[in-house]
Amino acid sequence: MMFRVPKTPPGAPLLIVEHMTMRFGGLIAINDLSFTAKAGEITALIGPNGAGKTTVFNCITGFYKPTSGRMALIKGTHDPAQIVATTRLGGRWSPGATQPQTPGVFLLERMPDYEIAAKARVARTFQNIRLFPGMTVLENLVVAQHNQLMQAAGWFTGLFGAASYKAAERQAVEKAATWLDKIGLTARADDAAGALPYGAQRRLEIVRAMCTEPVLLCLDEPAAGLNPRESAELNALLRAIRQDSGVSILLIEHDMSVVMEISDHVVVLEYGTKISDGTPEHVRNDPKVIAAYLGVEDEEVGIRDQGPGIRG
């Protein structure tokens, strides 16, 4: 089972978020956010605490339904007319988009969470790691391949030990073993996931998401709680993932060394509003970002001290 074809060509838009607004009662968590994540790139979403980054993630992965806005995930080449047509038709995706070989578009705001993962192929990790702690490392990765294995097993034909299911299961284990090799956890494959050290759990969660064969991988603070060595390992893993599988990555991160080092494109949020959008270089030098997030220059302190700036 390989990546779905047609793949969105590198550099073309993969996820187009337009005018996304999320209200919780009177609180506007995200205010008219628009950005585009391109295929094959690492897009970072940064911002001070409470800026709404995780809310954006929860909307993209279907755990929240945005109050308004459109999130289009492109399969194949980008065709603006198709997005408009699909939106008008009222479906969750363009006709045939779930079939292999057919290009199309998925409107994520209309899809429930598990469908976004299964059909649109958007995988995610969580800020507070959500592994299956009582299952082994290998089981965690096999569960991630649930939908592929389900197709092989049917609902119950696997009950009688069908050969096709056995083959599919062996394949799933092989894929899991390959990934475990990459993160150096092969020796612990048969240990409970909950018994792993924190850094290993983080890597395992990322790899588990990769086992669903996503086109877009959303990582919510993958470097949180990691020491510098583990942080460097994470950078290497993310780069390797992008290079080997061509998956696009959407990343929330506070660790600027990770963000500036590996991302191609940075979106900065503050109080739910986008304040900057561009390359790491661009963002790093954007006075708005510096004022709001990275801190202000020493000589400006006197002037800006009363302002709402949060210094990093």
């Binding site: 755990f63 969470d113 598990y114 995988a123 995610r124 959500r130 592994l131 299956f132 998401a209 669903t212």
Partner: peptide, 12 residues
């Protein structure tokens, strides 16, 4: 073990 993680992996 974890229902939310299940849904994030595409399990209905």
């Amino acid at each position: 073990e974890d229902e939310i993680a299940c849904r994030s992996l595409g399990i209905d």
